[in-house]
Amino acid sequence: MNIFRLFGDLSHLAAIAILLLKIWKTRSCAGVSGKTQLLFAVCFITRYIDLFLHFVSLYNTEKVMKLIYISASVFTCYLIFFKFKATYDGNHDSMRAEFLIVPAAGLACLINTKFDAIEILWTFSIYLEAVAILPQLFLISKTGEAETITSHYLFAQGSYRALYILNWIYRYHYESHVDTIAIVAGVVQTILYCDFFYLYITKVVKGQKIVLPA
């Protein structure tokens, strides 16, 4: 574990917590893409499937973190699609999730480290996570604005994988550890946030709201 991965995971936890708090406190999921949250839930379940296969005692933080990610993302989907369904902006959350899931699944079968079920599920989860934020960014471009709290959520969510890139550089240099698939997907994922990062740093930090087109 290094400082970059630690802060990456903390940033990820913060993003999940910010979104849950926003929906719970405002009792509304306006401006939140339910599809993105569904895709994240799929990512966690397919990536941490080993938790369900052979139950390992929860002695280490990694297992606990995995359970937190899975339960928090499923709970977020429950809030969006059931509890606060009336506030779900289905009309603007219109990006076809199939256009993200099918290519990720296909690519996972073509480009992977080893052709076995668990490894392909992990690879699918990595590819899907890289593009899972697209419905959320698409929704913001359709509505033309993002609530400040949602911007903080996106900043934390985007920072998590950006910090992981620093973690991979660190591990390459000090542990000569390389996970090419995770690195390439992580770079693609972070690039998708660049436009948002620019808006966040030039606007939200100054207390303004993000309104598109910028």
């Binding site: 990820h12 080893k114 490894e119 992990w122 992981y164 973690n167 996970d179 995770a182």
Partner: peptide, 10 residues
């Protein structure tokens, strides 16, 4: 072995 493939990151 599977340890080689074990992905040790979240």
């Amino acid at each position: 072995g599977s340890s080689l493939l074990h992905h040790d990151e979240l």
